[in-house]
């Protein structure tokens, strides 16, 4: 590969995209409560360590995803909207704009991050982490809406990453979840897949609880591969719909 391509500038969305991903997950994970007002722009940008312009870009992504709304006037500001059922159009559009190759590329990164996170979690998880991971398996099984499933799914994976005690793996898993979870849980996902994802999470959790590093990594890798197949089927269906229309 030419050096030039390696030192090409980051996509302009780089920094803003990362902030948008962090905030999306913070909202999904319930770290920010529904209806909460975000701090004033200048202050918030300083808190996050980014330029106000970058924050504005990130907030507009959240607005598109229906996660915040900005009200004008005396009691105006930007407020968190954590609806139980976020609209699926933005995620459908994102999936439609993908390619199978791009989905495979995301899954490749996930194999590296999610697979290794599961292995290290099995080696290092504290009893509390194990309890939380198992609670998120149950949470997904009990989830009935798209919003609840996206949340339970991302939380499960982030909790596994937290159990590794690696700040870096947590950060990467958060980015991956905010990129993929919304596209996975779209209406076309078959009921059999919904059940299978639950079983796959359970399998990973059981291996982590049993301190079975090999088993946890293998289960996580199988899960990533199955999700890639699910995402690609969804993507191809969207292409087919477009052809038919």
């Amino acid at each position: 590969m030419e050096t030039r391509t390696l030192i090409a500038p980051l996509a302009s969305a780089g920094r803003a995209g990362e902030i948008a991903a962090r905030l999306t997950e913070a909202i999904h994970l319930g770290l920010i409560s529904d209806g909460e007002q975000l701090p004033p722009e200048q202050e918030f940008a300083q808190q996050l360590g980014v330029a106000p312009m970058t924050l504005r870009e990130a907030i507009s992504v959240l607005r598109e995803r229906g996660l915040v709304e900005t009200r004008r006037g005396r009691h105006g500001g930007t407020f968190v909207r954590r609806s139980l059922d976020p609209p699926d159009e933005p995620d459908t559009e994102r999936l439609r704009a993908m390619t199978a190759g791009a989905l495979r590329d995301i899954a490749d990164e996930q194999l590296a991050i999610t697979g290794v996170a599961a292995r290290l979690a099995a080696e290092r998880a504290t009893p509390r982490s194990v309890r939380r991971i198992l609670a998120h398996v149950d949470q997904l099984a009990a989830a009935a809406t798209r919003g609840a499933r996206v949340t339970a799914d991302s939380r499960f994976h982030i909790e596994v990453a937290i159990a590794t005690r690696s700040e870096r793996l947590v950060r990467r898993e958060v980015l991956l979840q905010s990129e993929t979870a919304g596209m996975l849980w779209l209406p076309h996902l078959a009921a059999s897949d919904v059940a299978a994802i639950g079983r796959e999470h359970h399998e990973i959790a059981a291996a982590v609880a049993a301190e079975d590093a090999e088993g946890a990594q293998e289960a996580a890798e199988r899960h990533v591969r199955s999700n890639l197949r699910r995402l690609t089927s969804g993507y191809l269906e969207l292409i087919e719909d477009a052809l038919g229309a």
Binding site: G30, L31, I32, S33, E36, Q47, G49
Partner: peptide
């Protein structure tokens, strides 16, 4: 502690919120 000094930690402690910390 933050680069800019000291700030109060704000977490989701809303009563009744299923996701409260």
């Amino acid at each position: 502690k933050h680069a800019g000094g000291v700030r109060r930690l704000s977490l989701n402690l809303a009563p009744g919120d299923p996701d409260l910390y």
